[in-house]
Write a protein that binds this DNA or RNA. Structure first.
Lengths: 190, 190
DNA sequence: CACTCACACTAGCGCTTGCTTGGTTATCCA
DNA sequence: TGGATAACCAAGCAAGCGCTAGTGTGAGTG
């Protein structure tokens, strides 16, 4: 009954749960469905997670940790040029969004199903992630790469990026990097 | 048991349902909760709607019809200048999004709960609405007001606009029109 | 060998769900 | 005045829900 996914088994179960949560939505996913997908009986599920809520928290935490790691790496291995950093951040966002799609869709659309304790805990991770964005956007604004109110600009950019999960088709001709570059080009003041 | 909201009573019930669906989500909203909010008993609810699904469809249809009406009016009462049209469209989108917020949040986030029949029917309304957008964006692209791929640009813009329901605070200092203007300014190529 | 412990099972409890039934009341037009 | 009709209610059914209790088992450890 851990807060974070220690065992390999639990990590795998979390991955399967994420898939079902995306497919059916958290509320419609029953513990019996989860158990079947995991190849066990519904009672056995509660050996790994203390309740259904904890499965949701595990899914979201897993996704957030990955996103944070990748975003930090992208920024570090990147020149200090504001445009390059903005592009790198957008690429990293979309990359995590689609390599780890299930977890992120759950994080975006099932957040409100978290109980207050888990929500408070995970909010810190989300804030840390958004802080990375704010800094990159601030730099871009200062360099006059883009224009506008820093609060609104960051919301619009994140909105446009997050909404991609609703329409983007990974099997289509466009790569996530294409999307990122196109978005940056669209908002840049030449 | 109508497809569209004919009676005044049903329209009012639909409005109340929309509010609850936003507050709790469709799945977590029970027919007993709905009935209580409407001031009737849960059984009586099925005199107005044949099942829970139909309530959802009524909510979404109501919101879509309103959005279409307002968007069409905005475009008509507007100069043919591409920038003015783009701005008008963004304003209309945000205006409906916040005057009729509940219905639109439901449409955006509970669409997948519709049964296939209702979904097919309502898809036509949604397509008609998006067609308005595509035309305005095409004009803006042709006038070189904005740059980029028409498909991606329209997705990004709608994404940024739709995502506002997740963070915008109507009691704050910014009006929906402020948001629309800021977004248009952000993506315009000066 | 005895012991622990992770993991799984069976069985089912207590409760909530969407929805139905059969009957009552208020309204309105012929 | 009478009869249709819309709107409502009390009661409850069948199914499904999250979760618990108690048990079995096979692998690793002293």
């Amino acid at each position: 009954m851990n807060v974070i996914n220690t065992s390999v088994r639990r990590k795998e179960l979390t991955r399967l749960a994420a898939q079902l949560f995306v497919q059916e939505g958290f509320d419609r996913t029953t513990v019996r469905m989860l158990a079947q997908e995991m190849g066990i009986k519904s009672g056995s599920l509660f050996h790994h997670f203390k309740d259904k809520q904890e499965i949701l928290a595990a899914v979201i935490e897993e996704g957030m940790q990955n996103a944070l790691t990748i975003a930090r790496q992208s920024i570090e291995h990147c020149s200090s040029d504001p445009e390059a950093r903005l592009r790198a951040m957008a690429r990293a966002h979309l990359e995590t969004l689609f390599t780890d799609r299930n977890a992120h869709v759950v994080a975006l659309f099932e957040w409100r199903r978290l109980d207050p304790v888990a929500s408070a805990h995970l909010s810190h991770l989300r804030d840390a992630y958004e802080a990375l964005w704010v800094q990159v956007i601030d730099d871009a604004l200062e360099a006059q790469l883009i224009r506008g109110d820093r609060f609104l600009v960051s919301r619009f950019i994140l909105g446009a990026l997050n909404w991609t999960v609703r329409w983007y088709d990974p099997s289509g001709p466009r790569t996530p990097d294409d999307l990122a570059d196109e978005l940056v080009a669209m908002i840049m003041a030449h």
